[in-house]
Computed example of a mutant assay.
Amino acid sequence: MDAPREPTQDMRAEFERRRPAGCAAAEWQLRCELAAAYRLFAQLGWHELIYNHLTVRVPDSEHYLINPFGLMYREITASRLVKIDLEGNKVEPSPWPVNPAGFIVHGAVHAAREDAHCVMHTHTTAGQVVSCQREGLLALSFNSMFYAGRVAYHDFEGITLDRTECQRLAEHLGTRNVMILRNHGLLVCGPSIGDAFAEHYMLQRACEVQVAAQASGATLVQPAREIAERAGEQYERTARQGDQNTLLWNAMLRWAWDIDPGFAA
């Protein structure tokens, strides 16, 4: 008996049907998925109005896609995304500008990490609160255990407009996929949009629970460091070897489609 057709296949087929002439199939699929990610971040309250960025590298190039500066996340569509190079220059015509702070942060990661095809940076309230705490993310909740020993930190240097910060930011991230920008917010990356989305979701949840637990006034319990780091290793191994991030991202794509399929335009 054949396996049931996964509903995301039909949706991706519709993406292809809508592909404009002159846009490569692989790029258009990424454009649709990145636009969906923006819509989902808006739905989940992870946006900062017209600020912050989610980027993805265009296949077989050093170019990447970024949001047009001036649009809300709920307004992002596949065709409105701007294609830029590592210096922040547009490589295709677009009526929209690009926020310089976007390519400073994202360009630094894309340039330093060939495996970091997708980069996401947010200023969520919980993420910023944790970024202001000296000890950063604590091993308190189930979600936070996933990041024991896996979080990089980068000290605040002002608004990210100085290109000399790129190298320091990339060096502090190293080979990790999660970084807390102190006094600033969260940054995650991954080999796909789905992988980066999963990292951000889990990290954001960890920050939310930490802030709520601290605000409760109760005595907080932390497991032994070796237990927390073991959980982090288990999560990283499972995410790398399994298909749970793909399953999660397909479900999120279907949710974005159900909310408004207009992102794939």
Rank of each mutant, 00 (worst) to 15 (best):
T124Y: 02
C118L: 11
M120L: 15
S131R: 04
A101Y: 08
H117P: 03
T125A: 07
A116C: 11
A108L: 01
C118Y: 11
T125V: 13
A116M: 08
H117G: 12
S131I: 05
A111P: 04
A116G: 11
V105P: 06
C118W: 06
C132V: 12
G127E: 02
C118I: 10
V109L: 06
V130F: 09
H110D: 03
Q128N: 11
R113T: 14
H117I: 03
V105I: 15
H106K: 05
H110I: 10
R113G: 13
V119S: 11
V109A: 07
G102W: 01
A116V: 10
C118D: 07
V119I: 15
V129Y: 05
T124H: 09
D115N: 14
A108M: 04
D115I: 14
H121W: 13
A108V: 04
I104D: 00
H117V: 12
H110T: 11
G102Y: 05
T122Q: 06
H110Q: 05
H123T: 03
H117D: 10
H123V: 04
G107L: 09
V109N: 00
G102Q: 02
H106S: 02
Q128L: 14
V119N: 09
T122C: 06
Q128W: 13
T122L: 09
I104Y: 00
T124M: 09
A126K: 02
F103W: 07
E114F: 10
A112Q: 10
S131F: 09
P100S: 08
R113H: 14
V130I: 12
D115A: 15
M120T: 14
G127I: 08
C118P: 08
C132K: 04
